[in-house]
Amino acid sequence: MRNWSERASARINTAVEAIVAMLMAALVLDVWLGVADRYYFHWQLPWPEVLARYLMIWAALLAVSSGVARRDHIGLTAFIMVLPYQMRRAVLILIDILALALFIYVAWFGIAFAQSGAPRQAMIFGASLAPFYAAVPVAATLSAVQLVLVLLRDMGGHVDQPPFNDHMAEKIS
């Protein structure tokens, strides 16, 4: 079960990160285009500024699930380190379950939120706001799925045995 959830989490995360990388690349190109337009092309495009915000939101929110998979999200650990090991694991499992509840809430109400964007105009490409608003429920669902998988993978042991040795900081220092 533990191995299965570890593999599933990693697989989903690899796919999500590929999408996120493409969104980031598109974001960079979009802002470059906005500058080049004003300075060089003079097309007076209405959409680079708006699209940049929506690409940024999609990329950042999708990356939240990646942070869940890699246990990147920052918390204070000073207090729980004082607790005995078994109790610490129980507390951390409970915390994971509460976080899961939070993301299920966001995903559930996020669906209605995305639907509320359908009749509204995004002011670019004649599109509605629904595909942009959908970032919230999609990202929350992914985060919820990742939370279940990493809960099974770590069972509260992640503060004592971090799941990734190659923390992003170690790579660069």
Binding site: E17, V20, A21, L23, M24, A25, M56, A59, A60, L61, L62, A63, V64, S66, G67, R70, D72, H73, I74, M168
Partner: peptide, 17 residues
């Protein structure tokens, strides 16, 4: 470059959440 894009997005996600 691909790895940098992913890492940037992950750090941004941690802050933006």
């Amino acid at each position: 470059f691909y790895a940098m894009l992913v890492r940037t997005a992950r750090i941004t996600g941690v802050i933006f959440v």
